[in-house]
Structure formats: structure tokens, C-alpha cells
């Protein structure tokens, strides 16, 4: 049993609206876990609990227990900054900073206090290589990141997260704004990355979940309906609702 995250009875409210209802699940270390479900089912909200990005939303109330490496991350004394360096995040829309490619990747390390140029150079190169972007951009690291294509921008965002040497990378529909070829590249990248990182990915695309994930969790109306190995979810789901969803009967 090697769980990096262990969630027990998680309830989340936006004001009076309950977005997550008593979620309990474990996330395996160095595996890809996919979260699927129709829009508004709470899968993104759940993902944002894992690095406490929901703190930014006013009126958001969380009950229950989220353990990361046996530490309870919901306590007030817990160091959120440190959590976010260990649990990186890639967003739906590629959102590089309006600065150079180098500065984008070096942003996180700089914020955590690394100032030495030689050290940063090594980190940036390593991160870009891991994100399979280095060869494409090595000659123009000083160019503005907004000049990259959408797929390159998204891989840059992944490199930016990797530069922090995280344990976990959370991905919130990372390919929904990309074309099929860029999507394929990101998926290949995820396959490479899972050797070193735990990846939790939210996706609307069920084929994508089937292709890249080891485990799949199906959310519906704020409830976790089913979680199992991806093979089982897609071939012999236990729950009728899961079957209906993956066969395209709704959602």
C-alpha cells in the first residue's frame, strides 16, 4: 500500500451549495489517476483540494480529511507554500507568464530562494528536457514564452511545475485547449513522467483516460461513483451509472 494522498469523507461547500459529497479515495504513488465525469461533477474542485487552491475562493468551506504523505493538509498550521512546491499544477488553459521561456521555468525556484545563475541554468535545462521541450526551445530561451504554440506553452507549464521537483503533478484538463497532435505529445509526456511523478489528471476525454491512466475515478453530481483500475472501469464497471457514462448514454 503506497498512497501519496488519502482522502476521507471530504465535503466541500461553495456557500450553501455542496460541490463534493463525502468523497473517500486513495491516490497511488507514481501512478496516473484519471478523474472523469460530466461538467460540474466536482472533479476539478476535488483536484484543487489536493494543493489547496480552493483557499483562493471565497465562501469555500471544506470538511473532512486530506492526507498527503501521512500529513493532514487541512490544518491551519500546515505550510501551504511548501505543499504547492511538492504538489505542482497544470491548468486547462496554457498560462505561461508574459516573460522569457527561461524566466518562466526559473520562476518557481527563484521564488523559493534560488538565486545562483549556474544553479538555475541546470534546473531550467533539466526541467525543459523532462518536459520534452528542450530541443525545440534551447536556442531561444530568452524569447517571450507567449510566442510559443499552444502545445509548447502547455509543455512549458509542465516544465515550470517540474522545475520545483514536485512529487505530484495535478493536471486540470491539460489538453482540452490543444489540437490532436499537441494532445498526443502531452500524453506521451505523461507516460514518461509517471516513472518519477504521481499524476492526477482531470479529463473530459474518456479515450484519453483509457490511454494514459492506471486508475480511473468517476464523479457524478459531487459524488464519487466508482474508482478502480482503468481497465476494469472501461470494460466491466460495477456501477450502472459508470457504464451509462462511458458508453455515452449521458454527459
Amino acid at each position: 500500500m503506497d498512497n501519496i494522498f488519502s482522502i476521507k469523507d471530504l465535503d466541500l461547500y461553495y456557500g450553501n451549495f455542496q460541490a463534493l459529497k463525502s468523497i473517500s479515495l486513495d491516490i497511488d504513488r507514481n501512478k496516473v489517476t484519471a478523474l472523469i465525469g460530466p461538467s460540474g461533477c466536482g472533479k476539478s474542485t476535488f483536484l484543487r483540494c489536493l494543493n489547496r487552491m480552493n483557499d483562493l475562493i471565497e465562501n469555500c468551506k471544506i470538511e473532512g480529511k486530506i492526507q498527503y504523505s501521512q500529513m493532514d493538509i487541512q490544518t491551519k498550521s500546515f505550510n501551504v507554500i511548501e505543499l504547492r512546491t511538492k504538489v505542482g499544477m497544470v491548468f486547462q488553459k496554457p498560462n505561461p507568464f508574459p516573460m522569457s521561456i527561461y524566466d518562466n521555468v526559473a520562476y518557481g525556484p527563484r521564488c523559493s530562494g534560488i538565486k545562483k545563475k549556474s544553479e538555475l541554468d541546470v534546473i531550467v535545462e533539466k526541467a525543459l528536457k523532462r518536459a520534452a521541450l528542450y530541443e525545440e526551445v534551447s536556442s531561444r530561451l530568452k524569447d517571450n514564452a507567449l510566442g510559443l504554440s499552444g502545445g509548447q506553452q502547455q509543455r512549458l507549464c509542465i516544465a515550470r511545475a517540474i522545475a520545483m521537483e514536485p512529487d505530484v503533478i495535478l493536471m486540470d484538463e491539460p489538453t482540452s485547449a490543444l489540437d490532436p497532435i499537441a494532445t498526443l505529445k502531452i500524453e506521451e509526456l505523461i507516460n514518461d513522467l509517471k516513472r518519477n511523478y504521481t499524476i492526477v489528471i482531470v479529463t473530459h476525454n474518456m479515450q484519453q483516460a483509457a490511454r494514459i491512466s492506471d486508475k480511473t475515478a468517476f464523479f457524478l453530481m459531487g459524488e464519487l461513483i466508482e474508482i478502480d483500475s482503468t481497465d476494469k472501469i472501461f470494460t466491466q464497471p460495477k456501477n450502472k451509472k459508470t457504464e451509462d457514462y462511458i458508453t455515452g448514454r449521458f454527459g
Partner: peptide, 27 residues
């Protein structure tokens, strides 16, 4: 300035001050 920029910075473990002065202000 889109909130994306602020969330991206915070998600990288930057604190509020760093986010404001390193990511938001230059934009």
C-alpha cells in the same frame, strides 16, 4: 490582468507578495 497568472504563480509555491511583484506588476 487575468487571474490565471496569479493562480499559476501561487500554484508554483510563490506567496502573495512574490506573486504580486514578480508576476502581476511586470504585466
Amino acid at each position: 490582468i487575468p487571474d490565471d497568472l496569479r493562480t499559476a504563480s501561487l500554484a508554483l509555491g510563490a506567496n502573495k507578495t512574490q506573486t504580486t511583484f514578480r508576476a502581476v506588476l511586470p504585466s
